[in-house]
């Protein structure tokens, strides 16, 4: 893939009306009220089987209701480090929802809300749908009403490799004997795990490392989201920490030209084993909810708004396995 591509020019001012200009009223546009109102059946599914995940009064993202007793899947990186989560399903708010399990590879968290009698999504048999198939997802939401946004399947299902490869998020001191940490990236798993300046990395997943080349070799086949056991020596004492790997490209705030024209997109948007792609426009808060087909069945879970033109969802086949595994993990 090209590292660079030709940017679309920003528009000149086209607002001064000239003769013969015709304009379609907002209601009739693809996501205008008149069009979206035809998707009422699918919206009704979002109303009862999607969740709004909140911190206080702030909407963080959406969720997929997977059990009657309050288990909900959502995008992990949007709810991380939030101490008091609440959840709205239909018109009811549930406080003190807890993250009970996470899968760092897929960036999915399982939340438990103290609820009964919810309506879990019904899974579609497959997410392998032709491009051009209608899909429906959560749009801006009020406390009582879910709104639908519509679009189509827009590209082939595939893996989204971690941008720039996977990384711990540390800068190593040059010319030091061994692997001494010089700095820790603020957004990295290294920071979350508590790695510090001055720590000496001695082993990764139990494998002794003392040279930067050995570390690079170890990281080569690793995926973003995976956990690595990092052995360190701090002030003479040995310690072991679980560190989440991040996509190198997402550790820095550099924005490409395409990013600049993309509004608000997901912080974590690469490093997924498999996604389906659609053209529903949202922002970083519109992920986490179910992606529905015209039957109102769940064909996946929205996992990233990648840019202005591309949104990713975890295919239902993988989502079902994740739901089972995370529920099992939570029980232990």
């Amino acid at each position: 893939m090209n590292a660079r591509f030709f940017p679309i020019l920003l528009a000149l001012d086209l607002t001064t009306a000239s003769y013969g200009v015709q304009s379609l009223e907002g209601d009739l546009r693809k996501n205008g009220d008149a069009v979206v109102s035809i998707f009422e059946d699918q919206r009704a599914v979002l109303q009862r089987s999607s969740a709004v995940i909140r911190e206080g009064r702030k909407d963080l993202c959406y969720g997929v209701v997977i059990s009657a007793d309050g288990y909900i899947l959502t995008k992990a990186s949007e709810v991380q480090k939030i101490s008091s989560l609440s959840v709205i399903v239909n018109e009811t708010k549930y406080d003190n929802a807890k993250v009970v399990a996470t899968d760092p590879t897929w960036d999915v968290a399982l939340i438990k809300a103290d609820a009964q009698g919810l309506f879990p999504v019904s899974y579609a048999p497959s997410a392998d749908l032709p491009q051009g198939t209608w899909v429906v997802a959560n749009g801006a939401s009020s406390t009582t009403r879910r709104r639908a946004l519509v679009g189509i399947i827009s590209a082939k299902p595939r893996e989204i490799p971690a941008s720039g490869g996977a990384a711990l998020g540390v800068i190593l001191k040059k010319d030091s004997k061994g692997l001494e940490i010089e700095a820790v990236n603020e957004k990295s798993g290294a920071q979350e795990a508590g790695l510090q300046k001055g720590d000496q990395i001695t082993a990764l997943d139990g494998k002794k490392v003392s040279k930067i080349e050995q570390m690079a070799e170890f990281m080569k086949d690793k995926k973003a989201g995976a956990l690595v056991k990092v052995s360190i020596k701090r002030a003479g004492k040995e310690q072991e920490l679980d560190v989440r790997l991040a996509a190198k490209g997402e550790l820095f705030d550099e924005k490409s030209r395409n990013d600049q024209m993309s509004g608000r997109f997901s912080q974590r948007r690469t490093g997924f084993p498999r996604v389906i792609q659609h053209d529903i426009l949202g922002n970083e808060e519109s992920v986490g909810g179910p992606l529905l087909d015209l039957e109102g069945r769940c064909i996946g879970m929205n996992i990233a708004r990648a840019d202005r033109a591309q949104s990713f969802a975890i295919p239902v086949e993988d989502l079902k396995i994740l739901a089972e595994q995370l529920t099992k993990n939570a029980a232990h």
Partner: peptide, 19 residues
């Protein structure tokens, strides 16, 4: 979108003529 990607192919988007 964003350059050639063989695994992805070209990206299709649906809409209406609005102006």
């Amino acid at each position: 979108s964003g350059g050639f990607d063989k695994d992805r192919g070209s990206v299709v988007r649906l809409g209406r003529l609005v102006r």
